[in-house]
Nucleic acid binder design. Structure first.
Lengths: 199, 199
DNA sequence: TTAGAAAACCGACCGCGGTCGGTTTTCTAT
DNA sequence: ATAGAAAACCGACCGCGGTCGGTTTTCTAA
């Protein structure tokens, strides 16, 4: 049982993926046609659809990988005894880095992730991954006494995540123009969230 | 100077708009083709592009109108001496109502508004309108002493707006399933924002 | 009233994403 | 070794959004 089939399958998938990324990076998402990808991958156009549901999914898969790679850097030094605000900002800054480096892609990716036409497994996994990490950060801060232990962890996660989302929206608007400004704005909002906005 | 031209122009625009809305409502956005719209409006397909830049814009125009109509209800009784949280929730609830009633449309609209591929005039106007109202609400709350007058008004507006956005995202996820739940979740987050999340 | 400019209009066409039906390659069981 | 089932593969094709070039309608000014 050599598994020629499995091997070729993997190879083809890899070829398609690689071709897509090469072309997306070179010419942008819109300017790359499925036929372009097929040609570059030396594969029939219809073959691609045996591996990916549609054009967008090829691209989402790429973003996912990149983000995973980005976020691997975190994890370990997370539970430092840094103040929560630094942990949170560091976390989101890492996420943001990818968007900053791939401006054109960011809007496609965020659109699909924030307002999916339908909830599929990929999106749900994404949610899960985000929320787990936020969850653990919030719990940790509750342990160290930085955040009220009475508060619902989920709602608090959502709170900080929403602020991140808001800054991203601002970034698209041009209200935020550099990683520094991003961190600064995010920090300001997080401080508001921590201390409240009452007098 | 009868202005036959102007009159016909207006008429045609109206016909296209009406046809589009009728069909969008009946068959959904994706299922309505430009040719369908042209036929319904008794107009050549290419004519549509003299009035709207593309399919999406026809639809955005419709959403804008609807939202305007929705928000007109507000304005007047805004400066009541209700607590700020009620004013804010009331404001966003009105906005949300449209999305709730037009679930399929909401994702298209929000995608374009939150993460536009390019900033055009329409989007900027939209931003403006939102921010002006929020701005005035926040200022009012600063006057009544509900919100710290030291705080930057813009950043505080963004804060509340972000939380609204977060709940909308949750709605798409199925974490929020009714107007009641929407108001409840939004209120919870706003309370966190007002009081802070520290112990 | 009329020439000709400008605006509005339109059907034929293009390129793209995605599918269909059929062919080739690999696996499996005898 | 081989039949035939299953999986992988593919070019031709479809429907759609959007554009092009040319035609018709309206306006303007002499």
């Amino acid at each position: 049982m050599a598994g020629i089939r499995e091997a070729k399958k993997q190879e083809t998938r890899e070829a398609i993926s690689a071709a897509a990324m090469k072309l997306f990076s070179e010419k942008g998402y819109e300017q790359t046609s499925m036929e372009d990808i097929a040609r570059e991958a030396e594969v029939g156009k219809a073959t691609i659809y045996g591996y990916f549901k549609n054009k967008q999914e090829i691209f989402i898969a790429f973003c996912d990988e990149e983000l995973d790679r980005s976020l691997e850097k975190l994890q370990l030094d997370k539970m430092d005894n840094k103040p929560i605000i630094e942990i949170l900002v560091g976390y989101f800054a890492l996420d943001f880095l990818f968007f900053e480096n791939n401006r054109e892609f960011a809007s496609y990716f965020l659109r699909e992730m924030a307002f999916p036409h339908e909830m599929n497994e990929t999106t749900r996994e994404h949610d899960q991954r985000y929320l787990e990490i936020l969850d653990s950060i919030i719990r940790h801060a509750q342990d160290t006494g930085e955040i009220d232990p009475q508060l619902d962890v989920f709602m608090t996660s959502i709170h900080f995540f929403s602020l991140y989302l808001g800054v991203l929206v601002g970034w698209f608007r041009g209200f935020v123009n550099s990683p520094e400004e991003f961190e600064q704005k995010l920090t300001a909002l997080f401080l508001q969230a921590l201390d409240g906005v009452r007098p």
